[in-house]
Write a protein that binds this DNA or RNA. Structure first.
Length: 213
DNA sequence: CAGTCGATTCACT
DNA sequence: GTGAATCGACTGA
């Protein structure tokens, strides 16, 4: 029989741990996005850990800037960044304040509000593709920089929150190199996903962009 | 202040 | 599999 997901908010202490402990533990948890048009709920199936100033792959590697400032704040808050001129991606801040580590939410299964998510993801050919990839996930949830810094640990009607859901047994968790990460940051197996889950995004190594004419 | 490139996605061949 | 889209953050001079 299938366990009913626990819909209580994840407590801040959940995120106030080393990011490599939090990241695999986030699989199977729920992200709820409340919008004027209704809620969208997502079950996390794929994440990546970024370990602050010691991690060459992290936005926080070279220290605090206007963009990454939220990563240096308290755990349980959302860091949203803009990339490739058109996409947003979202992270949950982990560890003690100042550690500047976080988990990139890479993929998930839409468990509620799929109709609304489809209107934001017109190129998706099926529901498995709605949040298969970090920018797709943010698009499906309607997340942009205006939500940067949102506290995901409150129980109230905040626009974005993290719920307990159902933890995934460790024998169902897989790990490997992070997707699209350049150079020395690529060596760590800090990408975590649920074995055989159809919503997990394909792995791609980092590809340097060719020079424009 | 100009140059470079990105924690990506999509259309096309 | 390859290349374009598209712009803000960051870097180094």
């Amino acid at each position: 029989m299938i366990a009913t997901p626990d819909r209580t908010p994840l407590p801040r202490e959940f995120f106030d741990r080393p990011v490599l402990e939090v990241a695999p533990d986030l699989l199977g948890r729920l992200i709820v996005r409340s919008t004027p048009d209704g809620p969208i709920e997502l079950r996390l199936t794929e994440v990546e850990a970024y370990d602050g100033p010691n991690d060459p792959g992290s936005h926080a590697y070279r220290g605090r800037t206007a963009r990454n400032e939220v990563m240096f704040g308290p755990p349980g808050h959302v860091y949203v960044y803009f990339t490739y001129g058109m996409w947003f991606c979202m992270n949950l801040v982990c560890g003690p304040p100042g550690r500047a580590s976080g988990v990139l939410l890479r993929a998930g299964e839409i468990t509620d509000g799929a109709e609304l998510a489809r209107t934001r993801r017109l190129s998706a050919r099926n529901d498995k593709e709605l949040a298969k990839g970090p920018a797709r996930l943010a698009t499906a949830l309607g997340v942009d920089r205006s939500l940067d810094g949102t506290d995901a640990c409150t129980g109230g009607e905040t626009p974005l929150r993290a719920l307990t859901g159902t933890a995934v047994p460790s024998d169902q968790v897989r790990s490997g190199p992070r997707t699209g990460v350049a150079g020395d940051g690529a060596v760590h197996p800090w990408r975590f996903w649920i074995a055989n889950d159809p919503t997990v995004s394909p792995y791609r190594a980092h590809t340097p962009r060719r020079r424009r004419s």
